[in-house]
Amino acid sequence: MKIIEAKNITSLVKKMCIKAAHELPSDVLLAIKKSQTKQKGLAKYLTALMLENAKIAKKELYPLCQDTGTSVLFVEIGTELFIKGNITKAIQEGVKQGYKEGYLRKSIVQDPLFKRKNTNDNTPAIIHYSFKEGDKLKLSLLLKGAGSENKSVLKMFAPSATIKDIKDFVLSAVKTAGASACPPFIIGIGIGGNFEHAALLSKKALLRKINNFNKNKLYAALEKDLLKEINKTKIGPQGLGGNISALGVFIEEEPCHTASLPVAVNIGCHVSRHITEVL
């Protein structure tokens, strides 16, 4: 049985926070570069600024965006793995160290409703655990800014809903998100599960690489359709018009109750900061 020391998880999470805040995933960067060639005028200029921003962030170590987000982790634990120490504490400590040493903005408040006092270390991170056969520990981290997160929505449809109903719901969410959620977007959609799982699936979808479509052909076709229709809205970069409003649309689906059809839309901004590492 493989043994992983908790302190190694801390140092990895720390590095992941710092790297994610400063470096766009290569697929996202490539998608932005490609989108530039399809645009003109102001939209093209704004896309060039996005690329310039990515360059400055990586080269000179300024966070890509001042909102370095809520730290969201998906942790896949191999069943043949023994973790020596408390994994949750190790991850939280890694986030704390990463945000301090990386000069990242601490945005988490302790009490959501009354005091709203900053915890000053960006903890607690939000951690989702799952298990998988094998002896690997897979950590995926998303730094999720509030501008786009605040525009995310969930609806419990009746199973009688049509594909058009679902599409209209997604399009309406995207249009409402508009300029303040920092388009061009990456849209995560969770379909099925139940109330809380649909939201979780929509978040997980944001980890997918651009141009990696759903393995199920029906869902892949829906992803392509939605991407086309979102681009037709002409929201454009920064909501100032243009033919690229989204860089990717990703659907994750799951079985659900015969009487339910939950759909969640998690809006992701163009600074889609995520990173995956395996120990």
């Binding site: 704004l46 600024l49 996005m50 310039e52 921003n53 990515a54 400055i56 962030a57 000179e60 300024y62 966070p63 890509l64 965006c65 001042q66 909102d67 903005r105 601490k106 945005s107 900053n118 000053n120 800014g145 501008g147 300029a179 303040s180 959620a181 920092c182 920064q238 100032l240 901004c269 163009h270 600074v271």
Partner: peptide
Amino acid sequence: LAFGGLGAFYAKCVKKSEIVLFKELGC
């Protein structure tokens, strides 16, 4: 309108920065 998600780019436009009020509010 300033452009969202371009924090690094805008940092380079800043020549001087100081807190003048509500220091306790951090960012």
